[in-house]
């Protein structure tokens, strides 16, 4: 028991050190563009973990999830940009964004409570598009979102600073901010997974009628899943807006929703490390191909046959097919059963 405790502390310490030095290693080896990508990977981890609550835990197929990312991003944009002349601090905006995105989650959830599977997917897909179209058109009669032009000049999350005379690029500070929030979301998700509510979500996923018969108020518990997932999306959206310093409806299309869903499915639905892996792989790999596909073709064939951008989508498709063929449960499938088994053994020894 003590041994386990020590191992756990050691493991956490090692992960902490690795996360702390990671941007310096990557920055020195590959340059700032890669730290930027790392930051994006962290945003996608937060998004994917939020969607994982809805799809992975509660089994509700949501194809409009990016709408909550959009809500969070626009809340940040409106509260911290010259557009309305407001300049709220980050720590005040994020909770507001999470709350409003959560409310949107309930708004989406309420009319879809009776729907499952394909039907739910279609309705949520529509919801995602509606939000995007609203953002596109809310520039008249009162200009709220600035329409398709988007909102620019958003307050940055951090500035370049100097520590003991050494310049430190803002990307590093943003990295630490994102790591902290991503860890918080991982922590909350892990705690929820092994709780009364986490079990209720999985029960609904496995058999909704039996869940009702067990006394679960499926309506409330589903709405809670929508709200939790949406609020994580809202936090990630706010960070995205401050990171890019620009938002426009274009960033929140159906393809983005599908991308996040792929991260959840590819990594291993319902399994937190799997979802994290899925988010990292699907952020980094396509970027790698975009950067290397062009020069590589030049080196081998002397000219570019396939446009790197379309090659990226092609490889993305192939990767998904391969995973679904050889690892249908995802790269790291849920360890729920294994954990429970170990627990039972522990109980037997005690």
């Amino acid at each position: 028991m003590m041994q386990d405790q020590k191992k756990k502390v050691l493991g956490i310490a090692l992960i902490g050190v690795a996360l702390a030095v990671l941007p310096f290693v990557i920055g020195m080896g590959f340059g700032n563009a890669w730290i930027r990508m790392l930051d994006f990977a962290l945003l996608y981890i937060m998004l994917a973990l939020g969607l994982n609550i809805v799809v992975g835990f509660a089994g509700l197929l949501d194809l409009g999830y990016i709408a909550f990312y959009a809500v969070g991003a626009y809340i940040y944009a409106l509260l911290a940009s010259p557009h309305f002349g407001l300049h709220w601090p980050l720590w005040a905006i994020l909770p507001v964004g999470a709350l409003i995105a959560g409310i949107f989650g309930v708004l989406l959830g309420t009319p879809t409570l009776k729907l499952r599977g394909d039907y739910l997917a279609i309705v949520t897909l529509g919801f995602g598009e509606i939000i995007r179209i609203f953002l596109n058109n809310l520039n008249a009669p009162v200009n709220i979102t600035n329409g398709p032009k988007g909102i620019a000049g958003i307050d940055p999350l951090a500035k370049n600073i100097e520590i003991f005379g050494y310049p430190l690029h803002s990307l590093y500070l943003i990295y630490y901010l994102f790591v902290a929030l991503a860890l918080l979301i991982v922590f909350v998700t892990m705690r929820l997974e092994n709780s009364r509510l986490g079990r209720a979500w999985v029960a609904i996923r496995e058999d909704e009628i039996a869940a009702k018969a067990c006394g679960i108020n499926t309506r409330n518990v589903k709405l809670l899943a929508f709200a939790m997932g949406a609020s994580f999306g809202g936090v990630a959206g706010g960070l995205f807006a401050g990171f890019q310093q620009f938002v426009s409806p274009e960033s929140f299309g159906l393809f983005e929703s599908i991308m996040v869903l792929c991260m959840v499915v590819l990594g291993g639905m319902g399994n937190i490390p799997g979802v994290i892996l899925g988010a990292v792989v699907l952020t980094v790999l396509p970027e790698l191909f975009r950067q290397w596909a062009g020069p590589m073709q030049m080196a081998v064939f002397g000219q570019t046959y396939i446009d790197p951008e379309s090659m990226r989508l092609l490889l993305f498709g192939i990767a998904l097919i391969l995973v679904m063929r050889f690892r249908p449960m995802g790269l790291l499938p849920s360890s729920r059963r294994k954990a429970e088994f170990e627990h039972a053994e522990e109980g037997a020894q005690a």
């Binding site: 999985v202 029960a203 039996a210 869940a211 067990c214 039972a344």
Partner: peptide, 22 residues
């Protein structure tokens, strides 16, 4: 109608949902 992917113990734990309030 069981929760197929959950362990036997977890299935029964779900049955306690109503009698707990976390």
């Amino acid at each position: 109608r069981l929760f197929a992917e959950m362990s036997a113990l977890e299935n029964v734990m779900v049955g306690r949902h109503l009698r707990s309030k976390g």
